[in-house]
């Protein structure tokens, strides 16, 4: 663990609307190469903003970020999977994958071949010529994943990729993702607000708290491998991690944010 981190954030601060909203305040953490790290926290704590910062889609106001040893810049070394698949609706499934391969500078004939191979990898080879709207949400999300893998990224950034799916599809895709990660050992930064999902998948969980977005704590997860040999929820450690994180989130809520919101919902003159 002495090796240099692949992503490192030091006292990162990001504001919006000329400083009116502080989305991130003094956020610091590292991601090791090959690590599966999850960012967990309630809505509005800056998870998406953090991914954008790491990808180089937005600039920060203060602090330092290094992705792959340099100032982050969008490109094929970093690939993003979004909550909705964000497929280009006017392109076929294979066209969508070819699009990002073209951005990588791959030749036309090679692109097609590789797109088909990747669709095979996510089990959707037969849908190469379909349009996005002809597929189910789970299939679309698989294609979003295939597209990200297509560019052979060093780091995979995933923003609540399974949040919009039904419980069964989510369960299957989680396992597939974990097994893919185990084989390839790529670095994954995974955003979720599902505690179970974070524990199931991660080696490290960075807990965030909102308004402004800050790091609340970092939890290392150690579960028996291979994790999905049995339902990991049955491990006693799982319950311990879960109650620990649950408690921290209760504490966050107790810091007043929630009560304040409720109080604001009842105007004084009505009482």
């Amino acid at each position: 663990m002495t090796e240099k981190p692949i992503i490192s954030l030091r006292n990162v601060t990001k504001t919006f609307k000329n400083g009116a909203i502080t989305a991130l305040q003094n956020v610091s953490f590292d991601v090791r190469e090959g690590e599966f790290l999850s960012l967990v926290g309630p809505s509005g704590c800056g998870k998406t903003t953090l991914l954008r910062v790491i990808n180089g889609l937005i600039d920060i106001d203060a602090g330092d970020v290094l992705s792959l040893g340099r100032t982050p810049e969008p490109g094929p070394d970093l690939a993003m999977v979004f909550q909705s698949a964000r497929l280009l609706p006017w392109l076929t499934v294979s066209g969508n994958i070819e699009f990002v391969l073209e951005l990588r500078g791959m030749g036309r004939s090679e692109r097609k071949e590789r797109a088909i191979a990747l669709l095979g990898a996510v089990g959707l080879r037969d849908f190469a010529d379909a349009y996005a709207h002809e597929l189910s949400g789970g299939m679309q999300q698989r294609i979003g994943l295939a597209r990200a893998l297509a560019v052979e990224p060093k780091v995979l950034l995933m923003d609540e990729p399974f949040a919009a799916l039904d419980a069964m599809t989510r369960e299957v895709l989680r396992r597939e993702l974990y097994e893919m990660w185990s084989r390839r050992k790529m670095t994954i930064v995974f955003v979720t607000h599902d505690i179970d999902e974070a524990i199931l998948l991660s080696q490290t969980i960075v807990l965030l708290k909102p308004r402004p977005g800050r790091v609340d704590g970092i939890v290392s997860i150690d579960l028996p491998e291979p994790r999905f040999a049995v339902d990991p929820r049955t491990y006693p450690q799982f319950a311990q991690y879960r109650s620990h994180i649950w408690q921290r989130i209760q504490d966050m809520a107790r810091e007043g944010t929630k009560l304040e919101e409720l109080a604001g919902a009842f105007p004084k003159d009505d009482l």
């Binding site: 969008p74 490109g75 094929p76 690939a79 993003m80 979004f82 909705s84 951005l103 990588r104």
Partner: peptide, 16 residues
């Protein structure tokens, strides 16, 4: 905007 951001995330430049 979501599609444009997707393109940017994968390294597409302005003209693209």
């Amino acid at each position: 905007r979501d599609l444009v951001e997707m393109g940017r995330a994968f390294g597409a430049k302005r003209a693209m």
